[in-house]
């Protein structure tokens, strides 16, 4: 018996269709891992941002002072994100309406709330970007792998039909390459599914804290309107 064929020989010796499937799966795996890492950074920092901004917000600091700090950061070319964006949008709208001399308190509140809602949906959009791709990779790549397997095994049996004597050596490489395609499909799918579930939970947590914050903030604004 010769020694087993190596992984590289297996991949290079595969039929073109299976090779294409393998290439697609490999690229999918790379892209999904790019997204996994990038989303991890984004969502992780968003969660940290929630905690740090809530701390600053509830530290009893003057709201206009907080707003000014944010503007200063923007001037320094640093982007203001997450919860702070919602706060800034609501506060800006509130101040503008008040300076315009709008006397109707409900109108001011509505305007501020609308601005916050818009900022919230923008933030949410930013956070859940690409998550759908992970879901797609997770559900589709096993099928792609299976497709490669079917083609590979088909080729193996066609090769077998051409042989007068059917030996294991004729079928074995074809089946190995076919199974390798399935393996790659699973390899791409499993991390994508795990990451998608984890990030969905994280996203839910962050967005719900945004909603809670905007409710609390509008109640503060409401109090301010009616106190004056």
């Amino acid at each position: 018996m010769n020694e087993g064929i190596s992984l590289i020989e297996l991949i290079l010796g595969a039929s073109p269709a299976v090779q294409i499937v393998m290439l697609i799966l490999f690229l999918l795996s790379i892209v999904s891992w790019v997204i996994i890492v990038q989303r991890w950074l984004v969502l992780g920092s968003a969660r940290k941002g929630v905690f740090s901004f809530e701390q600053r917000f509830w530290s009893g600091m003057d709201l206009s002072q907080l707003y000014k700090e944010g503007s200063q950061m923007q001037q320094e070319n640093m982007q203001v994100v997450g919860m702070e964006n919602i706060f800034r949008a609501g506060f800006k709208e509130f101040m503008r309406l008040r300076q315009q001399g709008t006397v109707d308190g409900e109108a001011i509140m509505e305007g501020a709330q609308r601005a916050m809602r818009v900022a919230y949906s923008r933030e949410e959009e930013k956070l859940e970007k690409h998550l759908a791709f992970l879901a797609t990779v997770g559900s589709v790549s096993p099928y792609i792998g299976l497709f490669g397997t079917v083609i590979g095994i088909m080729n193996a049996f066609l090769g077998l039909a051409a042989q007068a004597q059917a030996t294991l050596q004729v079928v074995a490489p074809g089946i190995a390459e076919a199974l390798f395609a399935t393996g790659m499909g699973l390899f791409a799918a499993i991390p994508a599914v795990v990451a998608f579930n984890r990030y969905s939970a994280l996203l839910d947590m962050v967005t719900s804290s945004y909603i809670t914050f905007s409710d609390e903030f509008s109640s503060i604004l409401h109090r301010q309107i009616h106190s004056t």
Binding site: W33, V34, I36, V37, L41, M73, M78, V81
Partner: peptide, 19 residues
Amino acid sequence: NAFNNLIIYNGYPLSVVVA
């Protein structure tokens, strides 16, 4: 905070390298 901001919007190169 500034560090976080940098990561959020320039996270792609790092992710590509990691992947």
